[in-house]
């Protein structure tokens, strides 16, 4: 018995062994919540018109996702199956309220812009999806790593999509104006002899554009990792 315990400890290899690292890095690419698991698409469409919104949203989701995983995992043996969804949602809603109030206290400016989107985290499928699929059946520490990994994997895609949409749609990045038709842009296309042909693509600001951008990311991702290709 004691030997088995020692062996198990060796196999798991402490705080960040092979298994734990896999839990943390898998969602970044091979099991990415957006491009592979298809979770959290709605918010990825709504907040990716600008990089600033996307960054705040990503940080908030990382926080809510990792901590709701710990709490659910700690309570997993005492939640009756018949009311588990309500319990999970209460946990998520509490954490989201914490995020909302913190943002309100720290930076009231971005709170005014983002309060609607922060509320949307409650209905972000990633959080509840990982609780259902992982945290209800695993130990707290592993659930925390899984939640953290999924939150970060979601955030990376969110920032990439937002970068494409903000640059081609409004000609700026993080509200820093780079290319456009008025003098406050870094490259003023009405005066520049080199970029006179350039016009921002207004389609990029609309919802369907997010679908196209994510579709292209899926294409690149699966061309890079052929084992993810859908054979069905």
């Amino acid at each position: 018995m004691a030997e088995a315990a020692v062996l198990e400890k060796k196999a798991s290899g402490g705080l960040l062994g092979k298994k734990e690292r896999k839990l943390l890095t898998d969602p970044l690419s091979d099991n990415n919540p957006i491009t592979v698991q298809v979770l959290g698409i709605c918010s990825a469409l709504a907040v990716t018109t600008g990089m600033k919104n996307a960054a705040v949203m990503a940080v908030a989701v990382v926080f809510v996702c990792s901590f709701s995983s710990i709490i659910t995992s700690l309570l997993r043996n005492s939640i009756p199956k018949a009311v588990r969804m309500i319990v999970q949602l209460v946990i998520i809603a509490t954490l989201v309220t914490i995020v909302e109030l913190t943002l309100k206290a720290v930076s009231f400016e971005s709170y005014k812009q983002l309060s609607v989107f922060i509320g949307l985290i409650i209905t972000n499928c990633i959080v509840m999806g990982r609780l259902e699929a992982f945290a209800m059946a695993n130990k707290p520490y592993e659930s925390f790593l899984d939640g953290l990994g999924n939150g970060v994997g979601y955030g990376i895609i969110l920032l990439m999509v937002a970068a494409v949409r903000e640059f081609f749609g409004s000609g700026s990045l993080f509200n820093f104006k780079i290319i456009g038709g008025t003098p406050e842009f870094l490259i003023n296309t009405t005066e520049s002899w080199l970029f006179g042909w350039y016009a921002p693509n207004n389609l990029m600001v609309l919802f369907p554009a997010a679908m196209f951008v994510i579709a292209v990311f899926i294409w690149l991702h699966r061309a890079w990792k052929p084992h993810l290709v859908d054979i069905s």
Binding site: T35, W219, L220, H221, R222, S232
Partner: peptide, 28 residues
């Protein structure tokens, strides 16, 4: 569309995203 010659990495999910975007534009 499963029987069409779609590039392998776009099969399944990729095409679903693209189609939804196009259907959304139609609904606009």
């Amino acid at each position: 569309i499963r029987y069409s010659a779609v590039p392998a990495p776009m099969r399944g999910l990729g095409m679903a995203f693209l189609l939804t975007g196009l259907m959304g534009m139609a609904f606009m």
